[in-house]
Design a protein around this nucleic acid. Structure first.
Lengths: 207, 207
DNA sequence: ACCTGGTGTCACCAGTCGGTGATATACAAA
DNA sequence: TTTGTATATCACCGACTGGTGACACCAGGT
């Protein structure tokens, strides 16, 4: 009967339980709930194991960032786009798809929010990955976008990220609830139109 | 000598000390540091007074939201704009000025960030005020903007807010550091150009 | 002089936090 | 079997948290 008192001894499995616990905790209770005790509770293990395997909470976050695929690649985003597509279509696609993946991933949303609040190994690495996504996709295609184009895309993308974060707790900004299909389509239409217009109107015509 | 043991007894002054302590705390240490003990320490009073005067932390936040002018009006933003200015100029001005005031107010930045993380009396009221700012300015002028125009302005504004939040801890998004004058001017130029172009290109020309 | 109500101070509670040392168990090599 | 070691568990620490009851003081009116 003594075989039931202690848990299975499989260091790799325990590691994974801890990492899974962290993910569940972030997803369910948000980043503010993250702590050694909370993670241990969630993972169903003793907190001392966190120190043994990861040294500290920071080490755990680092490991989580290293081993977890935090944001999917954009390579497949552009796969179904014709090769000769005009740049404004590509930019639009990147922005909208990026937003869509964020909208579908509560974990990513929480990480984006966390990133705005404080810096730790996880948020830093996450931020860097997010940044590289779109750029890599363009670089792979040999596209070197104009600086202002990048700026516009980034601002629009950031806007969508902000709207998505705002919508999480039934707290939409200006009634723009990105999780509602109709609203999202409206926004997507506007973004598409804005990017296209940006390219069609010559730069010189400024006030 | 007994007159020095106890503090001055002036309920109103104490109330203000507490409210000021809360503001200093949020501004210096961020919203995650907010708590009964921390506020009491910062204000230099006993924490029991917080319960006496405000009932609870939530009550204190509510009072802070009620009594503090969280975000300046936009009325004066549009004062120096010619009456007959085209709508796209007004929209641009609102977006950019709004961003600028946020960029200059660490407190407001913290509240925006807080708002993305959780809901409490302060964040809720703050969000509502922020929302009304631009709309009121337009309504005062009898301007009823087209729906898509509002959407575009909101997305752009949200993008700027996001960029400003990201820039706080030397953690700029895509090297767009809104606190650097040169970068900010670049972004402002792009925003201005995007909004103008949006109006000049007819809606029908969509893919 | 006495009392009353408002005000500020202190001491304490139970609960949680991050962190650590000692111990019990399981498993594998000897 | 015995022994060694990696693993898991428990017990505890000091510090902090939100929250409350009891007390010290002061100013006013009666």
């Amino acid at each position: 009967m003594t075989g039931e008192i202690y848990m299975q001894r499989d260091s790799e499995k325990t590691r994974q339980k801890i990492l899974a616990g962290l993910e569940k905790l972030i997803t369910r209770d948000g980043f503010t709930a993250v702590g050694v005790n909370a993670v241990a509770r969630e993972a169903g293990i003793d907190k001392v194991l966190i120190y043994r395997y990861f040294g500290s909470m920071e080490g755990l976050l680092q490991a989580f960032a290293d081993e977890k695929d935090l944001c999917p690649s954009v390579d497949d985003i552009l796969r179904d786009l014709k090769d000769g597509a005009p740049y404004h279509e590509i930019a639009t696609k990147i922005v909208l798809e990026h937003a869509l993946t964020l909208q579908q991933s509560p974990l990513a949303q929480e990480l984006v929010c966390w990133e705005l609040t404080e810096q730790n190994p996880l948020t830093i690495l996450f931020g860097r990955e997010m940044e590289q996504r779109g750029l890599n996709a363009l670089a792979d295609r040999g596209i070197v976008p104009e600086k202002d184009s990048v700026t516009l895309s980034v601002v629009l993308l950031c806007g969508l990220q902000y709207l998505i974060l705002r919508g999480r707790n039934n707290n939409p900004m200006m009634n723009i609830d990105y999780s509602k299909n109709e609203t999202r389509e409206d926004v997507e239409r506007v973004i598409s139109r804005a990017i296209k217009a940006f390219y069609e109107v010559p730069e010189g015509s400024l006030k």
